[in-house]
Amino acid sequence: MKAAGVLMIALAIAVAVVSLVFNCQAEGRSLALANGTTVPMKCFWSAMAEIAVAVPLLGVGGMLALSQGRETQRTLAVTGGILGAFTMLIPTVLIGVCANPDHDCNRIMLPTTLMAGTLIIAVSLITLFISEGRTEASAA
């Protein structure tokens, strides 16, 4: 389970870093309102939410890397999978990103988070599958 934990940590870091760097706010772009004030755009809020998901994911990955008990591993895998699903849902369904296909949030942040989310869910499922198989073998 060490490998799964390390992989999850790496993916969480990737999500956080990409969100931090490639949101339009970081590029200095923002929405100018009619009254002259500027507000951050959708992609910025998505990026903040991604970071908020990546931090607990980092913890889950660390615990998974160190965990021994099968029950713990299973719980961690499920938690990781749910966080992975959120990683994918935030920039697509829940908040979204800018509409312009040329922006970095669209070119880099969105695909990275989707890719990482897919991999996180895959890692969680494999972890679940393996720990399930192990208990079966040891019980038989």
């Binding site: 296909p101 040329d102 669209n106 070119r107 880099i108 969105l110 695909p111 990275t112 989707l114 890719m115 897919t118």
Partner: peptide
Amino acid sequence: ALAVYLFRNLLVS
């Protein structure tokens, strides 16, 4: 396939 699909815009630019 997933990577090419997701990163197609980055690829083009």
